[in-house]
Design a binder for these strands. Structure first.
Lengths: 344, 344
DNA sequence: TCGAATCACTATACCGGTTAAGTGTCAATA
DNA sequence: TATTGACACTTAACCGGTATAGTGATTCGA
């Protein structure tokens, strides 16, 4: 398979490379008839521009990057990532851009890879996920002048553009729903505390609970099954046992559900459970989990669109997604006291 | 940030671009002293070659591709993928090669993307996963002469090199273990039947059961929770109820476990469960699942190494991984009859 | 009817590497 | 002492695009 170049097209059309380039890129400088002839030939021989040549010539790589540095065995279980990539892809493929993807051991390795990609001109920009408080990646990308879009809160994004979803609104909707059911003591098992979205949810919970006049607590965990179960047991054994727990991911929610059930705590009769991020896992267990759902492919697609604009030098403001919505399933209900009252 | 080129190095070293290129690539043609001086300058200014220029010049993209076309919400839950990428990455980054990753709606879209990558010279080769019977991707890649490594069985890989793991051995070890516990009727809930590894496991189960003198059956499913639960219910309600079920992935195994428990079937007292592919999910449930574990990052790393060799024109034979090993947990035990006998 | 403007291209340089061919210097050999 | 050859470079072409500065022919206005 020899891959055709513009020189091949030029030869067949009886013009020079430049004329072909003009025709293919919609530039003036060729007559309508010639343009059409060139396009027909290009179509016929299945011409696609050599990405390296184009990149070298116009100084853009035609690719964007995404690096994840959560531990791989953790990450794999989080379905949001694949959906994010699917969304990004849908958008990029329209522009014939590619996505470079990598995992990294830690943030230092991630940063080293950004530097390398930048030095090699491999990418025109990157997506940043899991933004942390005092995130080291932000100043590095700013220093490199590397176009970047933060997938997450603008807080801490520095001069980088953020595409974000209002996590506080998610918490508020969950708290309002639970408070409406009669819950007066709501707990939450958090993700990794250094992530911005964890802090935002923690603050939002405290505030939402206060304004609803109910009690709340956030217990730190790290998205893993073990810590989720541990936090659940601590909460259920503690002196002020909550009647509802919100988990920062579905894995911990399931692990919490199972721990509760093994302790003889009935869900939802004695304990309501809400998971953050809906996935097939939520429907796996019994009762199925009420969850905060979001349209992650759309999120990815928006981020890709914004990054393309940022990379082309446009000054773009932050973009806010629709807030997550609560998908009601069997794991939530009225707390014990309300049940007793309503039975009477 | 202006990124340095070999011309910058050449200027500072007082030589030409060619000399710099020789020095950097370990080619003869420069004295040891000059070479050292050039390398020192390159190091000092943090030189990294422009990937597009190199790609254009030497005709290799310096990147490999991986496309997945399972539905994204399915895939996300399968941790193996992330681990595979982590393994691939570890190997590629040593060669300063990148990984292009994409998801596709279906196989036609996947094939279209290969053609596009090829025409644009985006990649030097691709990894093929989830090989199907009569897989359309194989002839296309052969036609394009695109270097490719099949991650999976050599069967159906055509002229492509395969890096594979003996799924039959996995089934055999599970059957031998279960038969040793006294099971006489083993079922399996399969993944998507058109995948080669599904067929291999099905055939291996039939054969292993026969040679152990026990009964076996494979029920078709598709890796989803729903079909896994459905298949489990069908098996448990059927006339010849199995005392052990092997599931082709952990999601179905969990869904099967939960279905069984809801039907009042005790695990492992009345039913043993084995999951294929160990992940945190297996330890999430109670009892935790016995599972076939494999070193997936190593798998990915091997595949990457082989693909790099294939892409450089070497004729490489298939590479076989260590077979999966059974990790014993609480979901397996002796079947009811043996229990009664041993109690007597 | 002549100069200027427009059109439709061509010629060519350039992006940043790699590499084949060429050149000047010096030591070893006949 | 002239010849050879190895060495240490330089020159220049090339990869496949894009973009800028020409160039010849036609059209237009005065």
């Amino acid at each position: 398979m020899k891959r055709p170049t513009i020189a091949d097209i030029a030869r067949r059309a009886g013009v020079t490379k430049a004329a072909v380039s003009f025709a293919l890129n919609g530039q003036p400088g060729v007559s309508a008839a010639t343009r059409e002839r060139i396009l027909a030939i290009a179509e016929e021989i299945g011409f696609q521009p050599n990405s390296a040549a184009r990149a070298l010539s116009d100084g853009r790589a035609g690719a964007f990057g995404l690096i994840i540095d959560r531990p791989p065995n953790m990450l794999g279980i989080e379905p949001w990532f694949m959906q994010l990539v699917a969304g990004i892809q849908a958008e990029l493929s329209g522009d014939h851009a590619a996505l470079l993807f990598s995992t990294a051991e830690d943030q230092a390795a991630e940063i080293a890879m950004y530097r390398s990609w930048w030095a090699q001109r491999r990418v025109d920009g990157v997506f940043l996920v899991d933004l942390q408080i005092n995130d080291q990646r932000v100043p590095v990308l700013e220093e490199l002048r590397m176009p970047a879009v933060v997938i997450g809160t603008p807080l801490g994004a520095g001069s980088l553009t953020a595409v974000w979803q209002d996590d506080a609104a998610g918490i508020i909707s969950a708290v309002e729903y639970l408070a409406g059911l009669g819950h007066r003591r709501i707990a939450r098992v958090t993700g990794i505390p250094r992530f911005w979205h964890t802090k935002i949810r923690t603050d939002a919970l405290a505030e939402a609970a206060q304004s609803a006049g109910i009690e709340s607590i956030s217990v730190e965990a790290d998205y893993t099954r073990e810590r989720g179960a541990e936090a659940t047991r601590t909460l259920l054994r503690g002196p002020r046992r909550p009647t509802a727990i919100i988990y920062d991911n579905d894995l911990m929610a399931i692990s919490g559900l199972i721990s509760a059930q093994r302790m003889g705590v009935e869900v939802p009769a004695e304990l309501s459970i809400v998971a953050w991020d809906d996935s097939p896992l939520c429907e796996l267990v019994h009762p199925p989990l009420t969850a905060l759902s979001r349209d992650i492919p759309a999120y990815g697609a928006h981020a890709a669109r914004i990054l393309a604009r940022v990379a082309s030098g446009e000054a773009v403001g932050h973009f806010q997604e629709d807030p997550p919505v609560l998908t009601l399933r069997g794991s939530t209900g009225s707390p014990p006291l309300v049940r007793r009252l309503s039975r009477a």
